[in-house]
Simulated assay, not measured.
Amino acid sequence: MIGMSKLKIQNTHQAKHLIAMSGLTSKRFAEMVNITPEHMSSVITGKASPSPTLANDIVTVINSRLKVEYQIKDLFLDVSVKKHATPPVPPRKEVRE
């Protein structure tokens, strides 16, 4: 599921709240997941898609700091599925008697 996924944060406000509740500044949180504060901001605001590894690192830090058990799917959406992945339904033919 996560291998080639394109991920986006589900809820920016929730993510910011969880980072604040972790007791870390956003700069320190970014350092803990080995990215720049600017990239962290882009991920949290949904402007950038984290790699599956980065998403896992973010969840791991939140879990360890808050003593919770979030999974990647709790904080991130998989948006890699194309909108038109299923073929459109053909229009119904009118039946006349």
Rank of each mutant, 00 (worst) to 15 (best):
D74S: 00
L66P: 01
P90L: 08
P50S: 05
S22M: 05
T60S: 13
T60I: 02
P52A: 07
M4D: 12
S26E: 14
G3E: 08
K83L: 10
P90F: 00
S80G: 12
E31R: 10
S80N: 05
M4Q: 12
P88A: 12
S80F: 04
K27H: 10
V95Y: 02
V95W: 00
N34L: 12
K82A: 10
K8M: 06
Q71T: 10
V33Q: 02
M21R: 15
H39D: 10
M21I: 04
S26I: 15
H84L: 10
I62N: 08
V89G: 09
N63R: 00
Q71C: 03
Q71P: 02
V68D: 10
N63D: 03
S22D: 06
L77P: 00
I2H: 04
P90S: 05
E31K: 12
H84V: 01
L54C: 13
P90Q: 09
G46D: 09
L66I: 03
M1R: 05
I62Q: 01
H13V: 06
R92A: 15
R28W: 01
I19G: 08
A15H: 03
A15C: 12
I72F: 00
Q10V: 05
S5I: 02
V79M: 01
N56K: 11
K93C: 12
F29T: 15
K93N: 09
V59F: 01
V95K: 09
R28A: 13
A20V: 05
T86A: 11
R92W: 09
P50A: 02
A55L: 00
L18C: 06
I19M: 06
L77D: 09
I19R: 11
V79W: 09
V59C: 03
D57T: 07
K27C: 02
E94K: 15
M21C: 14
T12S: 10
G3H: 09
G46Q: 06
K6G: 02
A30C: 07
T12A: 14
R96I: 13
Q71L: 09
E38R: 15
L24K: 14
K67F: 10
K6T: 13
E31M: 15
Q10M: 08
L54Q: 14
N63K: 02
T25I: 05
A30P: 07
K16E: 09
L18D: 11
H84T: 05
E97L: 14
V89Y: 07
V81I: 07
F76A: 07
M40W: 07
M32Q: 10
L7E: 06
K93I: 11
G3Y: 10
I62R: 05
P50K: 01
T45A: 11
R65E: 15
M32Y: 05
H17R: 11
S49A: 14
E97Q: 15
M4N: 13
S64R: 15
S64Y: 07
S64W: 04
M40A: 10
G46R: 14
P52H: 11
T45K: 15
P50I: 08
I62D: 01
G23T: 06
M32I: 03
